[in-house]
Amino acid sequence: MSDFVTLESVDLQYGGKGGVLALSGTDMSIRKGEFAAVVGPSGCGKSSLMKLVTGLTPSTAGQIKVDGQTVSGPLKCVGMAFQNPTLLPWRKLLSNVMLPLEIVQPHRGRLMRHRQEYVEKARGLLKMVDLQGFEERHPWELSGGMQQRANLCRALIHNPDLLMLDEPFGALDAFTREELWGVLQDIWMEKRFTTILVTHDLREAAYLADVIYVMSARPGRVIATHRVDLPRPRTLETTFEPRFIEIVHTIRNEIAQIREESRAA
């Protein structure tokens, strides 16, 4: 399989010279159809990394390639779910989820004539994340966790080639979160889009990912890469297997060490 996303010694400095150095010498290569997770201490530049890969923020140095093309502007057709759900308050849930269809081709051209088909699809996604019955509500009538789940649907509706998730389950309770791991894994196994998931939850990373990148404290760079070779589909039972626990432990120790080092420095 070929590399779908590659970063070569990428730097990112906010606010020009003398500004915050968020990333420094970051290398990554993610294969097509692979599920990658990025973990690291808070403020190490994970969200910044997402914006770099999608071309929303230009890098200060280094090269980023997606699907063989050097990223120089916003990519098209990425599915993105940010840390805070950015649903549009004037749209009801269903039309919020369907928003990407109004932008991305070929759906954009087909939406008018095949509306019913798309509505069914959106309803199906909402059902999968347990939001049926809320299609006609406004986002502000929903809880934070419900908004995050709808946010995930919006990121998936247009069958993106690349899915970028920035702590999509942050505001959810443990049970819902674990349930959604299963849902996301099912969808991913069916469609096999390349995915980059930023998370603080190491179990989440180990459950979902093929490969886990561990980042250092700011300025962030990749200091360790772990392949998760557990068979799929993984279940909650998997999370109690020794191999799973071992991976989580190793990464936890690495991050604890980073935090100590950065505190000492």
């Binding site: 914006k51 999608t54 916003p74 098209k76 990425v78 993105m80 805070n84 932008i103 991305v104 247009h158």
Partner: peptide, 14 residues
């Protein structure tokens, strides 16, 4: 307009 909201649409090629 909140930049995050704009980012979501821009990453779709808006």
């Amino acid at each position: 307009v909140e930049p995050e909201v704009e980012d979501v649409l821009r990453s779709l090629g808006a």
